[in-house]
């Protein structure tokens, strides 16, 4: 029982956007798909939901192919980040209409929940999507995802347009729905701060490759920040996986990713501090930016 993709490659115009992605999404978990803008998050999700064809590789749900298979597709909802700019046909569509079509096409649509969320978010559904703010469009993404009741639900950047209060509200709603239904959620985001505690598993996608797929807590616990005198830091972290070094004068700070059984040499005069998921992510994926 899982949604599985194997050796998925996606090529656009001769350029590989996804390189050989293999992933296994187990039922009843909240996954976070995190990565920088352009890392391939949307492409990966849309291939998992058979919205886009993969250039190579397979996607299966409980062993059955997802592509052109209504039985599998009925269990998947990939709620897209709506981009209702002027050239998109969606701009002229009313929010109400979009929700009506979603209600027609998702078998398990929860109308009562839809009404509750529209009220909670104070959305004017008579508005055209093209006239909605980024935050309102994020709310539409969230409403479709939660109301679809699909066993595998993907939310593509659901918090990108939300302010911090609305983000917290969204995560509470997500947890509530998760607790009552046990559905599998995949939340793609580049805003990691509040997401870290909600996501049970974290998948870090960087330049079309999966760098990390792990229990969020275990991954965060494996990362530490080591700082002190340059020589002491180098000695304490010798042989370890070191990322994102920063030096100021004689002082140096690095982020270390410890493998099971490894530890920072405690006899050295260095400070060892825990790091947040956000810091760990920046250490892994932000090296070009730091250089």
């Amino acid at each position: 029982m899982s949604l599985h993709c194997e050796n998925v490659v996606k090529t656009y115009g001769g350029k590989d956007v996804l390189h050989d992605v293999t992933l296994d999404l187990k039922p009843g978990k909240i996954y976070g798909l995190i990565g920088r803008n352009g890392a391939g998050k949307t492409t990966l999700l849309s291939i998992l939901a058979a919205q886009n064809p993969a250039s190579r590789g397979t996607v299966t749900l409980d062993g059955e192919p997802v592509w052109e298979n209504r039985k599998s597709l009925a269990k998947i909802c990939c709620s897209r980040e709506l981009n209702a700019n002027a050239e998109s046909g969606l701009a002229a569509m009313k929010a109400k209409e979009y929700l009506r079509i979603a209600a027609t096409y998702y078998d398990g649509w929860d109308k009562a929940l839809e009404e509750r969320l529209v009220k909670l978010f104070d959305l004017n559904v008579k508005k055209k999507l093209g006239k909605m703010s980024k935050g309102m469009l994020s709310m539409m993404t969230i409403i479709v995802a939660l109301c679809s009741r699909a066993p595998y639900t993907f939310l593509d950047e659901p918090v990108a347009g939300l302010d911090v209060v609305a983000r917290e509200q969204f995560y509470k709603l997500l947890l509530e729905e998760y607790a009552s239904s046990g559905r599998t959620f995949v939340v793609s985001t580049h805003i990691i701060e509040e997401a870290a505690d909600v996501l049970e598993e974290v998948i870090i996608l960087h330049e079309g490759r999966i760098l990390i797929e792990a229990d969020t807590q275990a991954f965060v616990d494996s990362a530490v920040h080591v700082s002190g005198k340059i020589e002491e830091v180098d000695a304490a972290t010798a042989g370890l996986e070191v990322h994102h070094p920063e030096t100021v004068g004689r002082s140096k700070g690095v982020t270390v990713f410890l493998k099971p059984g490894q530890r920072v040499d405690g006899s050295r005069d260095v400070s060892v501090q825990p790091v947040s998921l956000q810091r760990a992510f920046v250490a892994l994926c932000g090296e070009e930016a730091a250089r």
Binding site: K29, I30, E168, Y171, K172, L175, E176, Y178, A179, E194, D197, V198, L199, E200, T216, Q217
Partner: peptide, 17 residues
């Protein structure tokens, strides 16, 4: 577990742990 999860906005599995 679910009440704690909602209160702190954390995953229920974490609260259960």
């Amino acid at each position: 577990t679910n009440e704690l999860a909602k209160l702190y906005t954390i995953n229920p599995a974490t609260a259960a742990k």
